[in-house]
Every structure is written in structure tokens, then in C-alpha cells.
Nucleic acid binder design. Structure first.
Lengths: 255, 255
DNA sequence: CGGCATGTTGACCATATTCAATTGAAGTGG
DNA sequence: CCACTTCAATTGAATATGGTCAACATGCCG
């Protein structure tokens, strides 16, 4: 068993933007940027600020807007009645948050600020209006939703079939890829409890696994600073293939 | 707790289709049916048959079609290089499979037949053509993709934060809801190993947990026949809320 | 009949959780 | 400046949940 295709199954690098099967659109174009421009055109979208930890959008309430992140990070989470929580996604500057609730009356997941944030708020009314006006916009929105789905596909695989160390390594590689720092260091402003709720673990075990990764010379993480010591080994160990990551339009400061 | 709306959620189900926040679309219309009609109009879509277990679409190959299920079930799966596999979704008759790969050159997940199946194949070329022609179609496709994403959101929560028994109960309730049998019995033509790969467990443990659920008087499952003995208790125990399930257009035989 | 796939059960083991104690850093208020 | 609190992280010990290995039963099908 076990085929052995991926790990670099592309043309060259994470986005061999050369070949394009006819009729198939490349994910390499920055759809988010185009959608952002379309949604913000007119420049009258209200701006909103949130403090660290603030609830940007509660769960269960009628959904009525999407957000374009101007600065800061967000995360989405699903809370169970007994308090357990599963974090679903981390959202970075430039991303459009909330498209995935298209067609849903009330989101099941809540949205919180990860650090102080600046957002543009675009009402669904306005969004619909612009989508009706532009088939291309509709299409790009569909692709962005498909990309959110694809991220979940990968995370589902992590939670279902990867052990704690693999999940951690995989997630850190993912964030590294999304943030595109110049070096192998980047800031990840989250606690270990956050990582735990993201990866289906406990904070205690996250602490242990990070120590282990450090001992193995793979990752050094302290005080929200991540240093990937041996990316190639880590990628192999975690079965990380960035093929599922679209270009995330993020401007970021390394270290 | 535990609402009690659906089970016949068509006319006035989980979301009293009377009220509709302006600009917000209800998920209660059967978008899948409308998209199906649009894609199959002309009736020249090639039909394809697959035997049980056949690969409908391999992973890693250029994606070039979506499928409308005429009869039989499909499932999608992600396979890790070392053979571990995570099943992602079960697809039922009437569903359109492959929309979630919109914008992606090569799907990471493979698609297999669960029992003998009959499909209509619609090329992406054709799909794009019709989406360009109809903004409404684009929009409905976006909603269907959003729904796939929503299913993942729920399953992610299961894998991350629910224990084995809860995952099993939750999944069975979900299938019960999607299949809409007349009674509390339905056929689920999968093995315990299948359930295991779906829920991030081992087949041995699935066996044990099913025995436990039987002992508790909650679920009786044998030879692919599921009997939900105490739905209300089960729902409460598993935190199952069908709100995330759109109306799945499925015709099914109970028992 | 024999082979294969599936499910069940037991014994043992591993991974991860729970509980608890400790440390260090950061913030508050006297 | 110094208690005092709070929160995050670390570590150890005990525990639990689920995994591994293996044996066996059953049903199906050639």
C-alpha cells in the first residue's frame, strides 16, 4: 500500500504557475486581493477596532457582515455547551472573513480578535449586490470559500490521523508558509492553550511536545517566537505539503 | 435542552422559512436540486458507472470534472504517504461532488465508490460555462461549497474535542438526519474500519464503542443496519444539533 | 472445503489527559 | 519599591482513553 506521489508533486515549488490546464483556473492568482478591492471600492466600508480577545462576531446570532482584516489577527472557534472548544482557523491581515457562512442564517462558530485588530465591515447586503453585478466576483468568492474548505480538509487529516508532535509541526509549518517571513523565524502571538484548542490537545501536552521538538532540534518556540531549526526534516516528519495553501496575502515582520 | 425541529425540515423545519433577514438567503431552498437541474439540462452529460470500491477520481491528478450522483454513494479520502487515511465525506444520491475543488488544480483527496454507483460527469469546462451564463448558478455553487465547508467545521469539532463514543453517535445522527428514513432505522453500508477512518479511531475501538452504545440502549448497529434506540438521549449525549445540515436531497429506503 | 473479509474480545501498551505543585513574567495597588 | 495577584509555562506522578497485537468467530464466496 501507500502510494508515494506528493511532497513536491507540483511543477516546481508550491505554485508552479506555469502550467494551467485549459478551463481550470489557477489558485495562484491572488483572488483575495481582487475580492478585497471589489468590496472596498468606494471606500465607505465602516471600520471597526477590537481589543485583544474581543468577540468580533458571536456564534448563533444572525450573520450580517463579512470582515476584511486591515491589521491584526482573528480566529474562529466552535464552543461546546460544556466548555470544550475547538479553534477552527486563524485569519491574517488581508483575508476576508465570513464568506464561508454564505447561505447560512446563523454561524455556528464565533470570531475573536487575536490581539488588537482593525477591520473593514462589509454587509452581506452590499456583498450580494456586488456579486450580482459581477460574475467574476462571485466566482472568486466561490474560490475563496473553496480554499477555506481545503484548509479544513488538511486540518481534519491532522486531527484524525496525525499524532501530537506531527500536528504541532504541521501547524507551525503552515503558519510559517502563510506568513512568509524572510527567515525561519516568525512571531506567533498565541498561547500554548490556544495551540491545544486548535489541534485537539491539552496545553500541558503541547508544552511537552514543544520541549520534545526542541530536544530533537526541529523547532524552538518560546514566548510566541517560533524558530524552525530544520525545515526539511520537519516537513518530512509531519508530511507537510504546502500544496493546499493558497497565497495568503500577508505582510509580516519576521522575528 | 435539545431542540426538536427537523426530521421533516422541508416545509417549516429548522429555520422557519418565513422570516428572512433582508439580504440573507435561507439555506432551506434546495440549492443542490437547482444546480443539478442547471448542470444536467441538455441531458448530454456522460454517465459513468463504478463498482464498489472503484476509484472515481484519484488524488493528485489534474481535476477536470464534477459528478452528480444518480445512484449509490461515494466517499472522499485523504491518504498519507505511510498508509494512514482520513475519510473526509460521504456523498449521497443527488449531491454534486467536486465543487469544493473549485480553483484547485489537483485535488488532494481521492474519491471512491461506496457500493456500485451511477454518476453523471460534468466537465469543469461546461460548469464554468454555465456559471458564467448565470450569476444565480454561481451563487448557488458558492453556497454548496460553503455547505461542504460547514460540514467540515462540525467534523473538525468532533475529531478535536469529542471522545470516541460521542464521535460515533454524532456521526450516526448526522447520517440519520441526512438520509431521512421514515423510522429510526437506516442502512449504512460501511464497515467499522470505514467508520474508524472517518472518525480518527481504529476499527477495534469502533467495535468496542458500538458495543458500549448498545449496552447503554442508545444505538444498535449490526451488519450495516443502524437502529437509533433513544434519539433524544443520544442527541444530548453527543451535542448533536442538526443546524449545520442543509437539506440533503436524498431518496432513501429505510431499514 | 478453504480463503478472505469483517467483527469481537482479551491482554498489554502508548499516547495523551488529569491533577497538582512550581516557576517566572507581567500587572496592580498600596 | 514591594507585596500580591494572575496568567502562562513547565514538570512529575497517576490515570484514562484509545491503540496494538493476537486469537477466534462468523459469514460469504469461489
Amino acid at each position: 500500500m501507500a502510494e508515494r506521489p506528493p511532497i513536491e508533486a507540483r511543477g516546481g515549488g508550491p505554485s508552479g504557475d506555469a502550467v494551467d490546464t485549459p478551463g481550470a483556473r489557477s489558485r495562484d492568482r491572488d483572488h483575495a486581493a481582487e475580492v478585497r478591492r471589489a468590496l472596498l471600492a468606494g471606500d465607505d466600508a465602516p471600520r471597526r477596532s477590537f481589543d485583544d480577545g474581543a468577540t468580533v462576531r458571536p456564534a448563533g446570532q444572525p450573520r450580517n457582515a463579512v470582515f476584511v482584516i486591515e491589521a491584526g489577527w482573528l480566529y474562529s472557534a466552535r464552543i461546546l455547551p460544556d466548555g470544550r472548544r475547538q479553534l477552527l482557523e486563524v485569519w491574517l491581515p488581508g483575508q476576508i472573513v465570513g464568506l464561508g457562512e454564505h447561505g447560512l442564517q446563523r454561524p455556528l462558530s464565533a470570531l475573536y480578535a487575536l490581539g488588537p485588530t482593525e477591520l473593514h465591515e462589509i454587509s452581506w447586503e452590499r456583498l450580494r449586490e456586488r456579486m450580482c453585478a459581477s460574475g467574476e466576483l462571485s466566482d472568486q468568492v466561490a474560490m475563496l470559500i473553496a480554499h477555506e474548505r481545503l484548509m479544513f480538509e488538511e486540518r481534519l487529516t491532522s486531527l484524525g490521523r496525525r499524532d501530537a508532535a506531527e500536528r504541532l509541526g504541521h501547524f507551525l509549518l503552515e503558519m510559517h508558509h502563510r506568513l512568509r517571513p524572510s527567515a525561519n523565524r516568525f512571531r506567533l502571538p498565541v498561547t500554548q492553550a490556544f495551540l491545544a484548542d486548535m489541534l485537539g490537545l491539552t496545553s500541558v501536552h503541547v508544552s511537552r511536545m514543544l520541549s520534545q521538538l526542541r530536544d530533537e532540534g526541529l523547532v524552538d518556540m518560546n514566548d510566541q517566537g517560533v524558530h524552525l531549526l530544520d525545515i526539511d526534516t520537519l516537513r518530512r516528519a509531519c508530511d507537510f505539503d504546502p500544496g493546499y495553501l493558497a497565497v495568503d496575502p500577508v505582510c509580516n515582520d519576521a522575528d
